[in-house]
Design a protein around this nucleic acid. Sequence first.
DNA 1: GCGTGCCCCGCTTTTTTTGGGGAGTAGAAA
DNA 2: TTTCTACTCCCCAAAAAAAGCGGGGCACGC
Lengths: 239, 239
Amino acid sequence: MGTKLDMGQILEDLESTSTLDELSAVAVRLRDRLQVEHLIYHWVDGANNQYGYTTYPDAWAERYQEKSYHRIDPVILGCFQRFHPVDWKTLDWSGKVAKGFLQDALSHGVGNQGYSIPIRGPNGQFALFTVNHSCDDETWKRFIDTHGRELILIAHYFNRKALEFESNRRPDATRSLSPREVDAMTLLALGYSRAQVAHSLTISEHTLRVYIESARSKLGAQNTTHAIATALSRGLIVV
Amino acid sequence: MGTKLDMGQILEDLESTSTLDELSAVAVRLRDRLQVEHLIYHWVDGANNQYGYTTYPDAWAERYQEKSYHRIDPVILGCFQRFHPVDWKTLDWSGKVAKGFLQDALSHGVGNQGYSIPIRGPNGQFALFTVNHSCDDETWKRFIDTHGRELILIAHYFNRKALEFESNRRPDATRSLSPREVDAMTLLALGYSRAQVAHSLTISEHTLRVYIESARSKLGAQNTTHAIATALSRGLIVV
DNA sequence: GCGTGCCCCGCTTTTTTTGGGGAGTAGAAA
DNA sequence: TTTCTACTCCCCAAAAAAAGCGGGGCACGC
């Protein structure tokens, strides 16, 4: 677990992949080279979809899905609010549900040590790159001290590839919003009422409605709130 | 421009800062060590706020602000949709406004070569870490080939520090939402109407209103849309 | 035992938003 | 040149949401 990595080789390895399967193969090699038990890369979105690659036992992956564990998993919750990588030990495991979850995870073959790197892509994509292992705290600390920085880079390149494949698979019909539409959406997201937004943009409320409506239809949203949420998670507006 | 960097030292240097001023000082040293003309780190948020550190001439920074150039700047627009670092040459500089912008930039002392790394933090934060220089394409390519990966890491750590300072400056008062409130907010964000949400959660619409209202007041939001936007950007719900 | 937070339900009134129309300008792209 | 997109304005009726009031029960920690 303390071996020196040839980063140039690893990153080239990653770069050279052109299918998801190849990426998975690289992930396996990477896991072996890092000498950890598990290596996980997955995306999270609100509709319970998890997508990615894991070396966890299938039983655990299924259980995780079935129980909607992503909603209580401290790793997900914690990483979602942080920027830097997170050692699982530093997360908040107090609380009944978290403890139950942890027990369940351990009993399904998940290692006791973990290090997760949150990754955010365009369009509000959120992913986690995780290495997982069973060992004592001291050993794990040495591993992280040695490979922490390298893992950040690996996670970066890994995600880059995954995004590439994903956007091929689902070419997002991301018609972008016009500047005025962005203005309107942004101000709405900031809590202004339509009257206030119209006033801010010095346009009539009727005109404003046209923007909202066209943004809504571009985003395929059901209503204004949905449009705001969609625009936010696609990264089309920033609040 | 091709010197070997002592990454350990640079990152430690970054880590050791505890004020924004110190971070700025590190940025200057970093610029000198990289032997580039300019080094810029800044955030962009919806309210036109730009915040960060730049070595551009003040005149340019002011002009940029005054003209709201962030709305047409191909670097911002391009990076906002990408995950990986972007060489300015690969961006779309066709179009009248873009060309005018480029001319204006060059005449204010901005170098012709640039490399920008998009960085996304929690709460929808978006930042750019940019190095800028004047030289020919060949020289620039060598520089990027040599330092590209290192720049990613530097950008990561730089942003990490900046986020740290910013969140100190603005401590978020994040009272968390109850499970039921999270349910309500999530479904609303997915575009369901109140009636549909109430039906999904098998509670009355009146009860649902209580959750929405209590979530709204916890989040200090003006209205439901604002509450959804706030919850999303604070990472309390995921869509 | 008391407060606090969570969970559930009811009514009414006012305000806001939404859904459908239609029309004209300017500027950029093809 | 034509075509397209973005931007601006207007009307109306219906639906939805907000905002105000009220009620009760359960579990947890101090």
